[in-house]
Amino acid sequence: MSLATLLLLADGRLPSGGHAHSGGLEPQIAAGRVRDVDGLAGFLRGKLATSGLVSAAFAAAACRRTRQWVDLDGGLDARTPSPALRKASRAQGRALLRAGRAMWPIAPIARDPHQPIALGALAAAAGLTPAEAAVAAAHSMITGSASAAVRLLGLDPYAVHALLARLAPECDRIAAVAAERSGDPVDDLPAVGAPLLDIGAEHHATWEVRLFAS
C-alpha cells in the first residue's frame, strides 16, 4: 500500500476527463432541484448511497479480480439503464486508462470500459488494495459533482468543502461496505439505482447547449 499513490489516483487534478462531467448535477440544477448547498448535500448523499456504492464495489472488484473485467463490465451495463450514463461512464473509463497507462503498466483491457472497471484496473496496476480502489471511487463520485456545483451555481467553495468534510465519514463507510462485498458474484454486487440520475441524464443528452458532458 502506498498512501501517496492512492492520493494520486484520487486527485481531482488527475488528467482523466473528470472536470467535464457534473455527475448528473447539471440536469438537476436545471430542473430546479439543486439551488444551494443544502440541495447539493441531498444530491451528494443520495448519489453516494446509490451509484457511489455501486461504483466503489465494482472498482474494488475490478482491482481484486483482474481476470473478470469483462463480466464486471457487463454487470455495470445491467446496472446502468441510461444509455447517456453508459456513454459517460465509458468515456471516463477510456480517459482514466489513458492517464493510467502513462503512470503504471496496465494489463490488457477493453478500449473504453466503464469508469469503475478502469479505476480498479489502475488501482491493481498501482499495487493498491480493493479497499483503496473503493475509497477512490466513492471519493471521486462526490468531489466531481461538488466541483461542478461550484462552477455552475457559484456556490461558496468553502461551504462546499465543509460539506465534503461532513460527507467524508459516509464516504469511508460506503467504501468499506463496497470492499467487503467486492468478492461477491457479479449479480450479487450492489445495484442501488437513482431514478433521477437516469432520467436527468437522458434529458441532458437532448439539450442543445450543455456545459458538462454528463
Binding site: A123, A124, G183, D188
Partner: peptide, 15 residues
C-alpha cells in the same frame, strides 16, 4: 452464478 470469490486474498492479481 459465477463462482464466489471469497477464497481469494484481498490483493490484486498480478497484471
Amino acid at each position: 452464478h459465477p463462482e464466489p470469490q471469497h477464497s481469494e486474498p484481498p490483493r490484486p492479481e498480478p497484471p
